[in-house]
Design a protein around this nucleic acid. Structure first.
Length: 481
DNA sequence: ATAGCCTTGAGG
DNA sequence: CCTCAAGGCTAT
C-alpha cells in the first residue's frame, strides 16, 4: 500500500518542477473584506475557472514545492569540510557560503544541497537510508527530541521528522537509483543560491546580520515577494516581540499572512489530475491539499516575530502539536470569507454541498465537516474579523505547550487580541469571552480531527508518505480540557 | 546503522 | 573539459 503511494508520488519528480504563475490579481480585493458577513465573496468566486476542478490540466507538478529550509548564522566557521579539496577550482564565494553553513538538521557542516535542502553528509546519508529502505521509526519521547550533532543518532524518528519539516524530499531520491547527472531539483537550488547571495549582499551592506534566525525557509524571500509583501509602511523587522507594541505584533502577524488565492493555487497543483473515485480518494485529495495549506501556514508563522521567539526545535514541536488546530481554523477562515452556509469549500475551490457530505465522506469525516459548518456559524454570528482569526491561529500555536516561554507568548498574543477587540469593538464587552468560547469548540473539533486522522492512519488509509502523517501526527496531548 | 569518502554522469 | 547532487562503498 505504501509502495503504491510512494510510486505515484515519486513518479512526479522526474517531471519538470512546477512553475508558479503570478496569481496575485484577486487577493488585494479579498483582503479588503474585513467583515465577511456583510461582504460575501461568493459571487466573486463563483465564476472562477478554478472553482471546480473538473477541468484540471495535466501539467507537471511538484506536490512538495514548498520547501522550508534554513539559512543561518552561527559559529561553525572554523570547521573545514574534509572533502573540500577541490576548493581552489570553484568560485570562492560559493564555497565559502557552504563552509559556514551549519546543517539545519543537526548543526554539522553542510556539504551541499541534498534532497531539497542544504545539509551535511550524515543527514544526507541518513535520509537516503530511511527512504531507500523504507524504514519506520517511533519516538519514545513523544516526538520531542532535540537533534544536534551529538544527539542525532539517538532518535531516528525525530531526526527524520526534522529532515522532512525542514524541506527534505523523499521524491528527490531517484526511482531507478541511477547515478550521476543533474538533480531534478536543480532549479530550486539555483533559485535558493541566488536568494542567499542577494541576502548576503543586503546584510553585509547594511548591518551585521546578528539577528538572522536559523529557521528560514528556502526561497523565502522569493516566496514572500511573489506572495504578499508586507505593506510599505511596515518595513521594520523585529528581533523579539518584547520590543514590540501589541499593534506591532498584530501588524506583523497579519501582514505576513499568505493570501488564500496563493494557497489555493498551490493546493490545486498538488491534486491536479486526481479525481474523486471513492471516499478514500477524497481523503487522499483533501490531505494532499492540506499538506500544502500547512506549508503555507508554516511559511506564514516563520515570518512572524512571535514564532521566531522559539528555537528551531521548539518551532517544530509547536507545529507538531498545533497543526490540527491550525487546519481547523484555516478551514473556518475559508468558510467565513469565501464560502456560503450550504457548502464546504475545499482549498482548491471545489465545493461540497452539505447534503452530499455522506456521499463524499466516511462517517467520521462527515461529522467533522458538519462541525466545521456549525462552528463557522458561531464565528459568523460574532462577525469575527480577519485579524481576530489570525490572532487565534497564532495563539493556538503556542497555547498547547505548557512550557513557560510558550505560555508567555500565548498570553501576549491573547493580549493583542484583547487590545484589538477593545479598540474596534468597544461596544461589545463580552466579545473576547465569546471568541474564546468559540475557540474552545474549535479545539474540541481539532481533537476529534486528530483521532480521526489516527484511526485512518491505523487502517492504512493515510500513507506515511504524507508529511502530515509522518511529521505531524503526534499531538497526543492536544487538549487541556 | 552511521558517516565520511568515492564514483557517476547530464548538463553547463 | 568541469560541476555537483545523486547513489555506492566500507570502516567504524
Amino acid at each position: 500500500m505504501d509502495d503504491f503511494f510512494n510510486e505515484t508520488r515519486v513518479n512526479q519528480i522526474d517531471q519538470e518542477p512546477m512553475k508558479r504563475e503570478n496569481t496575485n490579481t484577486h487577493e488585494p480585493l479579498i483582503q479588503q473584506y474585513q467583515y465577511p458577513i456583510s461582504q460575501p465573496m461568493d459571487d466573486f468566486f463563483d465564476n472562477r475557472h478554478w472553482q471546480n476542478d473538473e477541468n484540471m490540466q495535466d501539467s507537471p507538478q511538484d506536490p512538495n514545492n514548498q520547501t522550508p529550509s534554513p539559512s543561518t548564522s552561527h559559529d561553525f566557521f572554523d570547521q573545514q569540510p574534509s572533502f573540500a579539496n577541490n576548493e581552489l577550482s570553484s568560485p570562492p564565494s560559493n564555497r565559502r557560503e557552504k563552509q559556514r553553513e551549519p546543517c539545519p538538521v543537526c548543526g554539522d557542516v553542510v556539504s551541499g544541497y541534498h534532497y531539497g535542502i542544504l545539509s551535511c553528509e550524515s543527514c544526507k546519508g541518513f535520509f537516503k537510508r530511511i527512504v531507500q529502505l523504507n524504514k519506520k521509526y517511533y519516538c519514545s519521547n513523544n516526538d520531542q527530541c532535540t537533534i544536534t550533532k551529538t544527539t542525532r543518532k539517538k532518535c531516528s524518528s525525530c531526526r527524520y521528522n526534522k529532515c522532512i519539516l525542514l524541506g527534505m524530499k523523499r521524491e528527490a531520491l531517484r526511482i531507478g537509483g541511477n547515478r550521476g547527472g543533474r538533480s531534478a531539483l536543480k532549479e530550486e537550488y539555483d533559485k535558493d543560491r541566488a536568494n542567499r547571495k542577494k541576502k548576503r549582499l543586503v546584510s553585509s551592506s547594511s548591518d551585521q546580520n546578528h539577528n538572522e534566525h536559523p529557521f528560514q525557509p528556502l526561497e523565502m524571500k522569493n516566496e514572500m515577494t511573489d506572495f504578499d509583501p508586507k505593506p510599505a509602511n511596515f518595513l521594520t523587522s523585529f528581533d523579539s516581540i518584547l520590543g514590540m507594541t501589541n499593534l506591532d505584533i498584530i501588524k506583523d502577524i497579519t501582514s505576513s499572512w499568505i493570501p488564500e488565492e496563493q494557497v489555493a493555487e498551490r493546493a490545486r497543483k498538488a491534486v491536479e489530475g486526481m479525481i474523486f473515485v471513492n471516499k478514500y480518494s477524497v481523503i487522499d485529495h483533501v490531505i494532499r491539499m492540506d499538506e500544502q495549506v500547512l506549508f503555507s501556514k508554516v511559511l506564514w508563522a516563520k515570518q512572524t516575530a512571535a514564532f521566531r521567539e522559539l528555537s528551531t526545535d521548539d518551532q517544530v514541536k509547536a507545529l507538531c502539536k498545533s497543526w490540527p488546530h491550525v487546519m481547523c481554523l484555516d478551514q473556518i477562515y475559508r468558510q467565513l470569507w469565501f464560502s456560503d452556509e450550504k457548502h464546504l469549500l475545499l482549498v482548491s475551490g471545489r465545493k461540497i454541498s452539505q447534503e452530499s457530505f455522506s456521499t463524499y465522506f466516511d462517517p467520521g469525516a462527515q461529522k467533522m465537516a458538519e462541525e466545521i459548518m456549525r462552528i463557522t456559524t458561531i464565528y459568523k454570528k460574532l462577525r469575527i474579523d480577519r485579524t481576530e482569526l489570525i490572532c487565534l491561529m497564532m495563539f493556538s500555536m503556542f497555547i498547547l505547550d505548557e512550557r513557560p516561554q510558550h505560555q508567555l507568548i500565548a498570553e501576549r498574543i491573547k493580549s493583542c487580541l484583547l487590545d484589538h477587540i477593545q479598540t474596534h469593538f468597544s461596544d461589545q464587552p463580552a466579545r473576547f469571552h465569546e471568541l474564546m468560547n468559540a475557540f474552545r469548540e474549535t479545539s474540541e473539533l481539532a481533537r476529534i480531527g486528530t483521532e480521526w486522522f489516527r484511526e485512518k492512519k491505523l487502517y492504512g488509509m493515510i500513507p506515511s508518505t504524507y508529511i502530515l502523517s509522518e511529521v505531524l501526527d503526534n499531538g497526543n496531548s492536544l487538549m487541556q480540557a
